[in-house]
Amino acid sequence: MELNVTGAFIYFKLFGVIPITQTTVSSFLVAVILIFLSIFLGRNLKKKPDGKQVLVEKGVSMLYSMVEESMGAHNLHWAPFIGTIFLSSICGTFIGLTGFLRSSTADLSCVLVWAVSVSVIIWYNSISQNGFTGWLKGFTEPIVVMTPMNIISEIAQPVSMAFRHFGNVAGGGVITSILYIALSGLSSSVLNMVAANGTAAGAVLLALGVILFVVNRTRWRKTWIMILTVACAVIGLFGLLQAAGILSGVPILAFGIPAVLSCYFDLFSGFVQAFVFTLLTMVYIANSCPPPETAENAQEAA
């Protein structure tokens, strides 16, 4: 069972040139889902909100308070962009859980596009504020020797944001599939070993499991006895089935464990990575557009 870690494979080439990959399909699907959700949740809003509207208002107000807190009141117009990145990153990661689709953030090209677009926004802001030469001069602060370092840190910013998000989601997927391959290999070797010497071993194991169960039915003194019982019964039963040729080759040991792992990698770390990506976007955009120099700011600064 050879594990082939492949990127998103190409379904077909649109007009012979543009490759439509799994990521394109799932990110378009995420976009459609989000558009449909926003239309469905956004229409006929009532003064006195009922069920779903309360939730949506809570989410939107949380988003706006987060943006206001980390970007300042003058940057509130960025909130829709930040919300879009957050939602598309979360839905992009969770769409992989549907089984047949590949999560769009598990592909570097999708995440790198977000990161580079954030950098382009930052460059646009600083160019529009202090001019192109001002922006170039910005690289030579504080002393000219620092210029290469500043350029590297300017490039490292999108790369690190993209690789962090992509690495977590894709790495988690690879680790889960490696574990799945290992467990199914283990289960096939164990079952073959049991089935190899006829139905005797399977029957004995099954009997041992049943006896242990009957003895400890009222009170499980130690947990390892419970685990031993279950293990003997399950391996004995499936060994017998394997010997009899039914259900042979079903990786029973690989049953629950990879699911638990993907709970951590896909759900928790996917959510945390989306949050980190959004937070860093807010921080980078915030310090690239300072508050406008109005009267009270100048007076406040003085």
Partner: peptide, 25 residues
């Protein structure tokens, strides 16, 4: 704390990616 941990994990993720590159690519 969770934010900080996620951000400090970046270098670990870099080495994980490099390890996968070595292994599979």
């Amino acid at each position: 704390m969770i934010m900080g941990c996620a951000i400090t994990e970046t270098t670990g993720i870099y080495s994980l990616l490099i390890a996968f590159l070595i292994l599979f690519v």
